[in-house]
Design a protein around this nucleic acid. Sequence first.
DNA 1: ATGGTTGCAAATGATTTGCAGAAGC
DNA 2: GCTTCTGCAAATCATTTGCAACCAT
Lengths: 127, 127
Amino acid sequence: MLRKTKQRSIIMDILRETRNHPTAEEIYLKARLYMPKISLSTVYRTLRSLVEEGKILEIKVFGENHARYDYPLEQHQHFYCRKCKELIDLYGDFYYPNNIPHKVEEIRTIFIGVCKDCLKEENDEKV
Amino acid sequence: MLRKTKQRSIIMDILRETRNHPTAEEIYLKARLYMPKISLSTVYRTLRSLVEEGKILEIKVFGENHARYDYPLEQHQHFYCRKCKELIDLYGDFYYPNNIPHKVEEIRTIFIGVCKDCLKEENDEKV
DNA sequence: ATGGTTGCAAATGATTTGCAGAAGC
DNA sequence: GCTTCTGCAAATCATTTGCAACCAT
């Protein structure tokens, strides 16, 4: 049976507030502001159990060696900017082929490229 | 300037032949059959440079802690079976929204669920 | 000959685990 | 009171790196 602890609720709160896909380390640093003695392993353990419960999403980006965590408010996909390393939420309709011969339970799409802000910077530099 | 070495071509050959997305460790074990003294770090170094050159793809699946490598013959997406942990290629047309305000260079979709073989097994068990 | 490449061992970085004490139920 | 959860430190796992020898150009 899962127990309600202070550290678990702090971590959930941080995930709910933080809209930019934090890493375990980042969550740990924020959590310490509320509870200075919280340990990194508790953060990892809690994140893992939240993922297993299906309450949050674990996202791994190629090239990055750490996982990021996402508290999803509604169905969305992600855009990863290879310049600023930002992981941006994308909402909208996605159409996938329906002739897949397997039982599809979840679809994750990640778009990779350069985000509009970095693109703007690139163009400004050229002037 | 990139040099043509025995280890690099062995690794490329293995990737070309192996159609099931091997890990670095698996590639290393196969490579040793051709070249017993090849080192794991050479395998990692070579894979990294191939990824950087864009010749192969690095794929990270949530839950798995190691990367897999894919030598893509043609544009395709992946299906990951959470039962047998197989990563299966999917060919076909995918439609994505075209109103994304960023510069999209690459799209990666991964479908997660239970593959048709595992599904069959599940059903057989129920009988 | 020169400089990229390798093998080895040691280092790193992210994440996990063993254990004894603390805290939920 | 029993059991899960935590903090700490040590362990693990995948991957990277320093370095001297090696080999392709």
